[in-house]
Design a protein around this nucleic acid. Structure first.
Lengths: 82, 82, 82, 82
DNA sequence: CTGCCATTTTACCGGC
DNA sequence: GCCGGTAAAATGGCAG
């Protein structure tokens, strides 16, 4: 592979290794999340319900951000302040 | 295929045709949506912005529903009223 | 919002509500589809395979329609049955 | 919410915030990954193929790790280097 | 033809 | 150990 494509092969390898590194970090964080859930569960909390709470809180956060932009978008859609 | 699997083949065909029928209706609605966007665009509105508005309004709606459940979930997670 | 953009605001609202209505119907149909898959699955069919079958049948149909359309175009070009 | 469940509520909040923090970091990494793919694409590489490569390399790595793990188990079972 | 967004498909995780 | 459901990835489709 080293001589196939020359420079391009090196660039490709670089991109792929960057991605793999990032994915590893993501996987490590996912493991951390699992640990926290496990700890919470052992403390007596219900994991399934916690997941729902977290999902809903995320919706809330997204919604807050949504609100901040909605009026601006209406104005834009109406051709005001464009 | 008619004799392969006998009854099962018929059931499978029935399921698949039901799904295909529903998918056709979905596609028709999608076409309708596209038409409305096209009409709006020809009236001078910005389609991309409209899409964002609709997405954000959906978030709002989802959020409202989320709020209705969140406290209950907290209680559940805390083992109250379980 | 009522006085932002006047008439335009009303038209915008109308377009958006039409689209939202259509999207709701689409979502309802998607739910129906999921139900049918669920029923098929509980009957013992493999959902993933069913999806493949449906995708292939759709390709066939699209091809067939393309062929028919092409034939019509040829006829038209030749002044037949136009 | 402050007086719902007392101490338990505080613990719950703590767990949930830890998880949310970790999830944010995960999301940031996911965004980084998307950026790298975008950069690679703009350099002329095919993203879909890159994904396949990465998936295959991951399988290899997992296999390798599985093999190494198995070897360790055998050693352990045999009382070597334990 | 490119980039973006929705939908679909895959993979994971907890529960039974 | 499998199943059901939920989150992430990937593909396909549409607008620009």
């Amino acid at each position: 592979m080293a001589e196939v494509g020359g420079i391009a092969a090196e660039r490709l390898r670089s991109f792929i290794e960057r991605i793999e590194r990032l994915e590893e970090e993501k996987a490590a964080l996912a493991a951390d999340v699992r640990e926290v859930y496990a700890e919470a569960k052992s403390t007596g909390f219900d994991v399934k319900t916690m997941r729902q709470v977290i999902r809903l809180r995320k919706l809330d956060r997204d919604d807050r951000h949504a609100q901040e932009h909605l009026l601006d978008l209406y104005k834009l859609a109406l051709g005001l302040e464009g």
